[in-house]
């Protein structure tokens, strides 16, 4: 699991690579907690995300909830595997996917 965060003013872009599962989700959780305060625009790039478990979904959901209060969150470059997970779990309804 590789997490790349790039902060540009109040915009934060997070690129995920590998598997976001029970073992790696806490990493993302930590990273987000550290960089999210004051952010008004959060963008996830999931192009190279291979797998997303419920623990990973939970982190995305938390982020979405925080961003609902302080700005906007967008999920970009969603590949087919991840898209299917989003659709099955209904996350496609609550996330802004571009």
């Amino acid at each position: 699991m590789t997490i790349n965060t790039e902060k540009n003013g109040t915009a934060l872009s997070v690129t995920l690579e590998g598997r976001l599962d029970t073992a790696t989700s806490p990493q993302l959780d930590e990273a987000l907690k550290a960089s999210m305060p004051g952010i008004t625009e959060l963008v996830f790039d999931l192009e190279k995300l291979e797998y997303l478990s419920s623990a990973g979904l939970r982190v995305l959901l938390s982020a979405q909830k925080v961003m609902n209060k302080q700005g906007s969150m967008t999920v970009t470059n969603v590949n087919d595997t991840i898209m299917e997970i989003f659709e099955i779990t209904g996350f496609s309804d609550i996330l802004t996917i571009r």
Binding site: L61, E87, T89, G90, D93
Partner: peptide, 12 residues
């Protein structure tokens, strides 16, 4: 047809 997971968000 899928809805959102339960416990995720109120009012779904």
């Amino acid at each position: 047809k899928h809805g959102f997971v339960m416990g995720g968000m109120e009012g779904m």
